[in-house]
């Protein structure tokens, strides 16, 4: 870790964007610190300049009708809020312990690789969009298209993630994950499902995101298409299993689980998530 780097702690977004524009990739950005400070301490990155985001006014949750706007600096603990889609609440709740929940931010989580991307997995199932802001421009990018490969993101060197928006989320959503600990813990695999059904429980909209097994979450498009126009309770595992983990993915392995185990757990988690939605829909 360099002891001679310049440090900035801007209190307004304009100043932060000016610094990002000036230093570009030579500015290491720290949101909650759970990933960025760890990388610095491990000497995994060398930085000449440092920008702390925590004084920026980007910690907010705005719910307007069926739309939700979440500031990038909102802490995960603040997502445990009944006004938000259930998948998002469950994902935040599943993050290990009060300390990490109180430090980690939503904006940081979308950059975080597995096993630290639970909230990003839920957001992807909810079709979330990121607002990327630079000095002169603001643009919206679907989270799904934000990931261009392992640790490669669709963000320019002069931009910051300012806000995450979920527009008109499906009526039902859930998130489930497998961890080596009995309660919340590091993710081995996770599945988030969001869907709308009509009165006869026919699926009218479905999105399925898988997290924890690849560097970043992904959408199971085949499964989503298959679910459309099917009665929710009639969907079985053998119909969708092959589409949950498409061939060609590079599945991670770590001390918690092998890649084979991760892959095999995805269908199990999908069915757990689906069954919980079937029960929820039948209770309405």
């Amino acid at each position: 870790m360099s002891a001679s780097c310049e440090v900035y702690a801007p209190s307004d977004l304009k100043t932060a964007l000016h610094l990002k524009s000036r230093y570009r990739d030579d500015l290491h950005v720290v949101a909650g610190g759970t990933l960025s400070v760890r990388l610095m301490s491990a000497n995994a990155i060398e930085t000449k300049n440092l920008m702390l985001l925590e004084r920026l006014p980007l910690s907010f949750i705005r719910v307007s009708g069926r739309n939700v706007q979440i500031g990038a600096m909102t802490r995960l603990i603040d997502l445990i809020d009944n006004r938000l889609p259930k998948a998002l609440v469950l994902a935040a709740r599943s993050v290990r312990g009060l300390s990490i929940k109180s430090m980690a931010t939503v904006g940081g989580n979308v950059f975080s690789p597995s096993p630290g991307c639970d909230v990003a997995t839920a957001l992807m199932a909810l079709d979330a969009h990121l607002t990327l802001q630079s000095m002169n421009r603001k643009r919206s990018v679907p989270l799904e298209k934000f990931y261009r490969g392992p640790l490669k993101y669709s963000i320019r060197s002069n931009e910051l993630v300012a806000m995450i928006t979920v527009r008109n989320p499906p009526q039902y959503s859930t998130f489930t994950k497998l961890t080596p600990l009995p309660n919340s813990g590091p993710t081995i695999a996770s599945v988030a499902i969001a869907l709308d059904v009509n009165k006869r429980e026919i699926v009218r909209r479905a999105s399925v995101a898988v997290g924890g097994i690849t560097t970043h979450p992904y959408r199971a498009k085949y499964v989503e298409r298959f679910m459309l126009n099917k009665k929710l309770s009639n969907i079985t595992l053998d119909q969708v299993e092959q589409g949950l983990v498409p061939k060609g993915l590079t599945i991670i392995k770590d001390a918690n689980a092998s890649s084979e185990y991760r892959e095999r757990m995805v269908p199990v988690l999908f069915m757990r998530a689906l069954n919980s939605l079937v029960k929820e829909v039948s209770r309405r």
């Binding site: 440090v7 009060l98 109180s102 430090m103």
Partner: peptide, 19 residues
């Protein structure tokens, strides 16, 4: 290494002193 910063828990190993 847990401490409280403004009453909220922080892991001091992941917290920069300047913050």
């Amino acid at each position: 290494c847990t401490v409280l910063v403004d009453g909220k828990p922080r892991l001091s190993c992941l917290t920069l002193t300047i913050s």
